[in-house]
Design a protein around this nucleic acid. Structure first.
Lengths: 336, 336
DNA sequence: GTGCTGTATGGTATCGGTTTCATTCACTAC
DNA sequence: GTAGTGAATGAAACCGATACCATACAGCAC
């Protein structure tokens, strides 16, 4: 059933029907006629035809590295809750941590004419830069600050600083570091910077042999913890860039009999559910991922509605949740 | 740039351009002309206009209860990987566990003319039935068997049976049960049935005071574990419908000093990351969620391509991963 | 009565493609 | 030579809406 048929059935013109659904001058009796007919037939205007004419899809593209990562999923939850409330739908692409697929997905959205894009960023390459520039669409970058674009990001440096500081203030003097690739600006570079700042603040020299890089998973955390402790057994507190890495390290400690927190303090970023109920509940910085998703959506809505706010960068804070892995008495888990 | 302009620029007719992109009789020299022009201008046909004419959106609607649930995220990963390989995009709706929103989302997809729908089902109400019937689209239900529709589901009964059996064979005789609402056919009804079957098999009478219902989260698991042990302190092994519930129970045991596995064997369904690195690594049934997502996508593709396979129900197996919570020596975590 | 404003109306062009159709042409078969 | 076939072509109809436009009418001020 299309608008022409429906209009005939309702005994009015196409224009009247269009005005009924979109607002516009329309006599009361016609409104009622159309309402009745719509009730009976279940007629609904075709979203595609509307899109073709209005050039609005009311769809937002979301590009993310890994959906099964708890943090990503929370960001998307936040994005979705806000956008759906405003009548937008989410077109999701999980790029499985592949830079190539990321660029491909952004390009797809460019052609597919979504109304806007939310990009959960990890690593920025020149290819990203290029595709983002060609994209004549509102874009909001989440998780990193990226000049020239609206972004929502976290205080990764501050979180790492606070956690490391916490461990140093507990009297430890041989801090270790398990991070991720420095190409990842937020999780790699910033968190490392925070760690280093804490050392500097405490007057502790930086020792490269106490720092290792891991992948974003528990297995890699295990491997790198092993490598770290073989090189630097004297490490007495350990900052990890992600909860998963810390859990790998915890597993290693469990196996070799190193006690936490007695022999090693452990802290990480992410505040995942796995960290909460870990062997030794994990001290972690809560990064408010759901909030950053929601905030990104709000920013995008502003761009979409053409409010003259322009490009804005929003930095969100963090909450350090102290648990047993840094010697805190075990507290009830943070409410999600 | 639209097809008319582009055709003029390339020095061919609209029809030729259309045939170039869709296949059809076209002279070699024209093909090359068009290819060259496309290269230069970056022209791409409008997806919306194509959709209007062809009535194909190449988008698949996915309805799910909670994205930040690890199992849901994995299913969606599986769905996405298969569908994207076939040129389909995912339109995601997270219904936040609300039945109302679920029905609303399905209705939205019906009007929005996605090519098909994948529905991660939890609870079926008459409203679901009604909206699914009106939906003249291919639908695949994931997580539950639902007559008349293609489904992919897990052997929930078998998994619960196997886990409970495992604990009983270890010599325990007072099994407890922490489940979820029976309105949830798979996680509620089937897993309870498996638990009961194991008791029957072992000749152990069913004791209602040893069975409690919880919500799908750790906090509720904690509360219900407390309730359970206050009613039935003699319980010496506990089956939980989900990992999160088991982790709540574990937390309670930790607080009251009940030892696992010495004082209580604990097993659940889901094999989450949190369970793997829990205080006592959790024995759990791995349900192959990613696979079920992929399988559902394949089923949907068959329906979309009109292969005369008709409605099919696919049941997937499970893998019991024995860990310390049932007394197994701790094994390395299952590769995801 | 005239001019102006705001409400109401339906016809028609338009969005950007695909598909049908009639036609032409080259080639083969008889 | 003629009929038949398949390749190639571009004009035009079509998909289902919205937006513009010209027009009409009622109410009010002057």
């Amino acid at each position: 059933m299309n608008i022409t048929e429906f209009a005939a059935l309702a005994g009015v013109s196409k224009s009247a029907v269009s005005r009924y659904f979109n607002g516009g001058y329309l006599a009361e009796d016609k409104k009622q006629q159309i309402a009745r007919a719509a009730q009976q037939t279940g007629y609904h205007p075709s979203a595609q035809a509307q899109t073709l004419r209005t050039r609005q899809t009311r769809q937002i593209g979301v590009v993310l590295p890994k959906l099964s990562s708890e943090s990503c999923a929370r960001v998307v939850e936040g994005v979705g809750s806000v956008l759906r409330a405003h009548g937008y739908q989410l077109l999701l692409v999980d790029t499985a941590n592949s830079t190539e697929q990321e660029v491909e997905a952004l390009d797809l959205f460019r052609h597919n004419h979504v109304d806007g894009v939310i990009f959960l960023a990890s690593i920025f390459t020149p290819a990203h830069k290029s595709v983002l520039e060609r994209m004549h669409l509102p874009v909001v970058v989440v998780g990193q600050k990226y000049d020239g674009y609206s972004c929502v990001f976290h205080d990764d440096t501050g979180a790492a600083l606070a956690l490391t500081r916490l461990m140093l203030r507990a009297g430890r003097r041989c801090p270790g570091y398990l991070g991720v690739t420095l190409h990842d600006h937020a999780a790699g570079l910033c968190r490392r910077a925070g760690f280093i700042a804490a050392l500097k603040e405490a007057g502790i020299p930086l020792r490269p042999e106490r720092m290792c890089l891991a992948q974003f998973n528990m297995e890699s955390g295990y491997e790198q913890a092993k490598a770290l402790f073989e090189k630097a057994p004297q490490v007495d507190c350990l900052f990890c860039a992600t909860d998963a890495i810390a859990l790998g390290a915890m597993q290693y400690c469990r196996e070799v009999g190193r006690r936490i927190p007695a022999g090693l303090l452990l802290a990480a970023v992410g505040d995942s559910r796995a960290g909460q109920s870990a062997a030794v509940p994990l001290t972690s910085a809560h990064l408010h991922y759901r909030t950053s998703g929601a905030e990104a959506a709000e920013l995008l809505l502003q761009l979409l509605h053409g409010e003259k706010t322009g490009v804005r960068a929003v930095e969100l804070g963090f909450t350090v949740v102290e648990r047993a892995s840094t010697g805190a008495p075990c507290t009830p888990p943070l409410q999600w």
